[in-house]
């Protein structure tokens, strides 16, 4: 096993004549918070789906948590967690039922689920709401719960697809506290976001433009490289360059 949680080499996906991701190559170290940025339609979602084993690449290589995404999809799926803003929890199940369900599909046994449930409810201070339907929770709580469930099986890597959209500023930061904590305990975090200030919370960032990775470094070095004050400016410079 290497020190990398994710290694890709010239990973490419074509849909007909359209190249959604064009030979992307990068590594993500274990325990790193890796920000995966790009404009709408730049190929982020496609790349992320390939890394999660949901899409077979057209060419190139990728090793996720030490497993090959072509041949060992099942092992890959066991070692990763996934959460997106659009889908994560069942609204018509209670908090507890959601935890039990996801614990179950990730193969946790009864005792593990029980202890995890207690631990998780306590951490999120959701003990009183355990028997409430998820649909009755405020959005921010749902997101935090969804994240905690995504890492319930102690995955090596967790993929977060725009996890904080529309959340209030305090909850958004509490959410990032959870991310920090997970990373601190060794989980690799792979996150996409439209909030450029959140990009700065990441250890390293890649910016995708038209299917290619156009920049990849720490936020500080990227800002220096582009002579910009904020990640927003870096992003605009890169994305604007393509349209001109």
């Amino acid at each position: 096993m290497s020190d990398y949680a994710i290694v890709t080499k010239a990973l490419t996906k074509r849909f007909g004549h359209f190249t959604a991701t064009d030979a992307i190559t990068f590594e993500v170290a274990k325990g790193e918070i890796f920000g995966f940025l790009g404009a709408n339609g730049a190929g982020k979602t496609t790349a992320m789906r390939m890394l999660c084993g949901l899409l077979t690449p057209t060419s190139g290589e990728a090793i996720i948590a030490g497993y090959n995404i072509y041949t060992q999809t099942e092992q890959v799926k066991k070692r990763i967690g996934y959460m997106s803003q659009k889908f994560s929890l069942y609204e018509d199940l209670t908090v507890k039922e959601n935890i039990r369900f996801y614990g179950g599909i990730y193969g946790l046994n009864y005792r593990q689920i029980k202890s995890k449930t207690a631990e998780l409810l306590q951490k999120l201070q959701l003990e009183r709401e355990a028997r409430q339907l998820v649909s009755s929770l405020p959005l921010g709580w749902k997101q935090k719960l969804a994240f905690s469930i995504a890492v319930i099986h102690d995955p090596s890597i967790v993929f977060l697809d725009e996890p904080t959209g529309g959340v209030d500023p305090i909850t958004r930061r509490q959410f990032w506290d959870l991310i920090y904590e997970a990373a601190d305990s060794g989980v690799t975090v792979f996150v996409t976001t439209h909030y450029m200030d959140e990009a700065e919370y990441c250890d390293r960032i890649s910016i995708m433009v038209d299917g290619k990775i156009k920049a990849l470094d720490t936020p500080g070095r990227l800002k220096a490289q582009f002579g910009a004050d904020s990640m927003n400016e870096v992003f605009l410079q890169l994305a604007r360059a393509k349209s001109s």
Binding site: A39, N40, A42, E162, H194, M196, F235, L236
Partner: peptide, 8 residues
Amino acid sequence: TGVDPVSR
């Protein structure tokens, strides 16, 4: 909402 920074 949900639009990338450039389009925003």
